[in-house]
């Protein structure tokens, strides 16, 4: 095969193809594959007792299971991400339905732009926006006190609910777009036909709309779940010290503890977790990854 590719005439013919592929290949190999292999190698280097030499072994991975803080943070991150993804789906569905089925013409374009507009500002700035609104001397506690709902300013930051709010907010668009795309292809007459044959709102949603939107739901859910699981800013800024997000543990290992080997192992555990959960989700709902990505 290699020999065939490299005979002079073949090389001449295939050269343009290789040149066209080069940027993608450099990207894939140089920036994704190689660093991952390096990290994998790093994660398998275990520090000996008493800070001695590094030996090859799964010690970093065993540390994760030995130390309850680590795997509890890990489980908490997974559960919170699933909740955030579910909330995002429930919030995004009516928005996507309105965009795809009800809004027309200019209004529709305007709404799409409004959805995109916040993304012109960095996530950091948007999260600080939430802090301004929610902190104890911020806008919302002030208003709550002003209108007599509370006696004194309440601290709305640093709760799990605040973290979820931030996560849902920052991932909404990634759910709305694939959902709106699949709902857009739903023929209105299918809904009318079901209504005509005796269906009501709930049964039409269950029997007609959701099965049709399933690839969009799968795509949106995968993207949002991955983004949430790997999110660092929202949990740390809105949850503070109590956020206990797994990305924070990775950050700590790399930056605070300077234990790259442990950090790399955590990174790989996160990768395995997200892959497993996405795979399980697709299996449970009978969807295929390719289908979900193509249809939305």
């Amino acid at each position: 095969m290699i020999r065939l590719l490299l005979t002079p005439t073949r090389l001449g013919r295939l050269l343009p193809l290789w040149l066209l592929l080069a940027p993608a290949l450099i990207w894939l190999v140089g920036l994704i594959l190689l660093p991952h292999l390096d990290l994998l190698w790093l994660s398998l280097q275990t520090r000996g007792d008493g800070g001695g030499d590094y030996t090859f072994g799964a010690g970093n991975y065993l540390t994760f299971f030995d130390e309850p803080l680590y795997w509890r943070t890990f489980a908490r991150t997974a559960v919170m991400s699933l909740i955030a993804t579910a909330l995002t789906l429930v919030t995004a569905f009516p928005i996507a339905w309105y965009l795809a089925k009800i809004a027309q013409g200019r209004l529709r374009q305007l709404l799409f732009v409004l959805c995109l507009l916040p993304f012109w500002v960095s996530e950091m700035v948007r999260t600080f926006g939430w802090i301004l609104l929610l902190q104890s001397n911020g806008v919302i506690p002030h208003l709550l006190q002003r209108f007599g709902f509370t006696d004194q300013p309440v601290e709305l930051l640093y709760h799990d609910a605040t973290i979820l709010l931030g996560l849902v907010y920052s991932s909404l668009l990634f759910m709305v777009i694939p959902l709106a795309n699949t709902l857009d292809t739903l023929d209105d007459s299918l809904v009318e036909a079901a209504y005509n044959l005796g269906g009501n709102g709930v049964s039409i949603l269950r029997d007609i709309v959701l099965p049709h939107a399933a690839p969009g739901i799968a795509a949106g859910t995968i993207v949002v779940f991955m983004l949430t699981l790997g999110n660092y800013l929202s949990p740390v800024l809105l949850g503070g010290k109590n956020s206990l997000w797994f990305t924070e543990q990775i950050y700590n290992q790399f930056i605070t503890r300077f234990n790259w080997q442990q950090g790399a192992a955590f990174g790989f555990l996160l990768l395995i977790l997200s892959t497993l959960l996405v795979w399980a989700g697709l299996k449970l709902t009978g969807q295929s990854f390719g289908e979900a990505m193509r249809k939305s």
Binding site: D187, S189, L190, E192, A193, A194, D207, P211, H212
Partner: peptide, 8 residues
């Protein structure tokens, strides 16, 4: 007009 059979 286009029958609207449920494809699912």
């Amino acid at each position: 007009q286009h029958l609207a059979l449920f494809p699912m």
